[in-house]
């Protein structure tokens, strides 16, 4: 491929004391791709996400991004999580972390925060530009909720939503930050087959209509195999395989890592 990858992770290493949670992991994502990161529990997948999104400061390696809008590659490891989000990488959480006592609309509005300007003075004076901005954010948030299919819950408190809807709200909230890439941490966990199927369609729709690339961690192999353009496999903090779903299915190292866990698709 001639194009630069929009996310290029090189030799990423994370040590906790003596433990190497990540050991020289390479991973790349190209514009418009859906890429899955799989591996047995404790393989270091969430740690990998945390290192990319600034929650942890990696002990070694590089995280480079080239946002499609201004393609200049830049190094982002070690910068704060909010800066990572500002640069266009938004994530969801494995253990749902919504703002439970805020409404669905407000949750999405928080996602818009870093694209807004109003400061203290603007908030107090509430001039025309501030009012316009607020209005625009409410509209934008509602539009996103509609796309995700959550508009009927718009004024409900996040804590009162059904489980599957909470997972989707996490995605909506992340989309509100105007990312060029979404990092989804086990988006289908705890969903029933019907909900998983809807999620499958939703993720493809986000990629196709919004042009947002996707990197996801997932245990549901059926979902992973049907969605992904490429798959990376991790075990014990190391990358053990990468390739198309077809290649991964046949890879002996992957089968060995998953011994006891079935991969059927």
């Amino acid at each position: 491929m001639d194009m630069e990858p929009i996310l290029d992770v090189k030799q990423l290493t994370m040590k906790f004391g003596g433990l190497r949670a990540l050991d020289k992991v390479d991973l790349d994502v190209y514009q418009g791709q859906i890429v899955a990161l799989i591996g047995p529990n404790g393989a270091g997948k969430t740690t990998f996400f945390n290192c990319i999104t600034g929650m942890y400061d990696p002990s070694g390696g590089d995280v480079l991004i080239s946002p499609p809008k201004n393609g200049r590659p830049q190094r982002i490891n070690g910068i704060k999580p909010n800066k990572v989000t500002e640069k266009g990488l938004a994530r969801t959480f494995q253990n749902i972390r919504l703002f439970h006592n805020m409404t669905v609309l407000e949750n999405v509005m928080i996602g818009c925060h870093c694209r807004m300007k109003a400061g203290i003075l603007g908030a107090v004076l509430r001039g025309a530009s501030t009012r316009r901005e607020e209005e625009a954010v409410i509209q934008k948030s509602y539009t996103i909720l509609k796309k995700i299919g959550l508009e009927k819950y718009v004024n409900d408190f996040a804590k009162n939503l059904p489980y599957g809807a909470q997972r989707r709200l996490e995605i909506a909230r992340a989309m509100a930050t105007d990312p060029f890439m979404l990092l989804l941490d086990e988006p289908a966990a705890g969903m029933n087959p019907q909900e998983t199927h809807e999620l499958d369609e939703l993720i493809i729709r986000i990629r196709d209509t919004e042009g947002i690339s996707i990197l996801l961690i997932e245990h549901d192999m059926k979902l992973v195999m049907s969605l992904s353009d490429r798959i990376f496999v991790m075990d014990y903090g190391k990358k053990i395989a990468q390739g198309t779903p077809e290649e991964i299915r046949k890879n002996p190292a992957v089968i060995k890592a998953y011994l006891g866990e079935e991969i059927d698709a």
Partner: peptide, 13 residues
């Protein structure tokens, strides 16, 4: 509500 989620949403804590 949640500091970690807040930062992930681009808010400067």
């Amino acid at each position: 509500e949640d500091e970690v989620a807040c930062q992930a949403m681009g808010i400067d804590k």
